[in-house]
């Protein structure tokens, strides 16, 4: 028999992944870093400007506005979608064809492309011909998302809730299904109320999936672009201009590559930081569990 050491060849198998990550992530990222510290005046004409773009971007009032809007929006998304997702998951049927049907119905919005979601709501909420828009107005409530900042906000928020709560529902549903029947039986015998069952069994057992749901929803909503772009184009005024759209405005609209690159990096770092905080939180609680 040969005496080759344990599968050192296996490292070769990792090589393709390295290459793909390098081409798809690292090289573009380095390009952005490159742009963020230079002023591009024309082809082959570049000047090193240091942290100037960063200072400019960080002192930009429009960015502050967009950042604040973004935080409020993401906060609202979490505050609505997480409790709503839990509530719906709790009321879903557990077995039989009803549960399969519910799962399919709930998952439907997740299957629709982002821009189509925007288009659907753009039509649906139109005050002149849209079903929802007309209905609300006929109730005597003035509603027009193209002119009222509040209405636009509300529409984007409702649209996001409609689109993404199903993800939270599915995650919570899976978490709930993994609780052994004995826990419910023991709680019944202990005389626990429905609230106590939720508080002491369902919620603790869902903690892990909820952490994932919060992380995903936070990151996604923090990067939201397509739907408000299609629906309101960021308006009226800047009312629904979130960070991504603001970035696109600088980069594509004004062709300010330097500030756009600097802003991209800041944006990237913020998301990375927040994800890292979540990640350490999850692994920390896991380790606590193991003890």
């Amino acid at each position: 028999m040969d005496k080759r050491p344990y599968d050192n060849k296996a490292w070769l198998l990792v090589l393709p992944v390295f290459l793909i990550v390098a081409i798809s992530a690292i090289i573009p990222l380095m390009t952005v870093v490159n742009y963020s510290v230079q002023d591009v005046l024309g082809p082959f004409q570049r000047v090193f400007v240091g942290t100037e773009w960063f200072e400019q971007v960080l002192n930009d009032d429009r960015l502050h506005g967009a950042f604040l809007r973004q935080l409020i929006f993401s906060g609202c998304v979490l505050l609505i979608q997480i409790p709503l997702g839990i509530a719906v998951a709790l009321t879903m049927p557990v077995k039989g064809w009803q549960s399969s049907l519910c799962l399919v119905l709930v998952a439907l919005p997740l299957l629709i492309p982002w821009n189509v979601v925007g288009t659907i709501w753009q039509l649906y909420a139109r005050p002149d011909i849209g079903l929802a828009g007309v209905a609300v107005n006929s109730l005597g409530i003035p509603y027009n998302y193209t002119s009222s900042a509040f209405d636009a906000w509300l529409t984007v928020l409702i649209m996001d809730v409609w689109h993404w709560t199903p993800l939270v529902i599915l995650l919570c549903y899976a978490g709930l299904r993994s609780i052994p029947e004995a826990f419910y039986q023991a709680a019944k015998i202990d005389g626990a109320s429905a609230w106590a069952v939720f508080r002491y069994i369902q919620l603790p057992k869902m903690r892990r999936v909820l952490t994932i749901a919060i992380l995903l929803r936070f990151m996604d909503s923090f990067m939201i672009y397509t739907e408000p772009f299609v629906l309101t184009g960021g308006g009226p005024g800047n009312a629904t201009t979130f960070l991504s759209q603001f970035l696109a405005q600088i980069a594509v609209g004004q062709f300010d590559l330097g500030p756009a690159a600097a802003f991209s990096l800041i944006y990237f770092l913020v998301i990375l930081l927040l994800s890292w905080i979540f990640y350490t939180y999850i692994t920390h609680t896991d380790r606590e569990d193991a003890r």
């Binding site: 028999m1 040969d2 005496k3 080759r4 050491p5 344990y6 599968d7």
Partner: peptide, 22 residues
């Protein structure tokens, strides 16, 4: 698993590093 020390002999032949499939 691979032992941290010592040898595994099969009919006198050292198979310590040989993977399970062989």
């Amino acid at each position: 698993d691979r032992p941290s020390g010592g040898r595994v002999l099969w009919d006198g032949k050292d198979v310590t590093g040989v993977s399970v499939r062989r």
